[in-house]
């Protein structure tokens, strides 16, 4: 039983504790700011959280760098509607995150 719990613990840690490759970090900040001037790490992380919680319900997440900014601008109006996001602030944070991490 102990062994089973240990294995379970390992599996869950692989999933949760590994820092996501999509999560914005310090090192990426200059690159992100080139695409979205003035974006802060905190704001980008907030956008990432909104993305994870709101955009993986109907399909798996699409990698942000699968699209250019103009590509995202094309799909986002429809998808924001589908995700029923209404707060202007949330929408802006989500957009900024995707733009900052875009192709």
């Amino acid at each position: 039983m102990k062994k089973v719990l240990l294995i379970l613990n390992c599996i869950i840690s692989i999933g949760c504790a590994t820092v996501s490759n999509l999560k914005p970090n310090e090192k990426q900040l200059p690159i992100m700011q080139r695409k979205v001037p003035g974006i802060s790490l905190e704001e980008a992380r907030q956008g990432f959280k909104l993305y994870k919680f709101n955009c993986a319900g109907c399909h798996n997440l699409h990698k942000p760098d699968a699209y250019s900014i103009s590509g995202w601008e094309k799909v986002l109006p429809e998808m924001l509607g589908k995700a029923k996001l209404s707060s202007e602030k949330d929408i802006q944070a989500l957009k900024n995150y995707l733009f900052a991490k875009s192709k």
Partner: peptide, 13 residues
């Protein structure tokens, strides 16, 4: 409850 994501994380759990 979803603990991690199959795209954003190494493993979805």
């Amino acid at each position: 409850v979803k603990l991690s994501d199959p795209v954003a994380n190494k493993l979805g759990v």
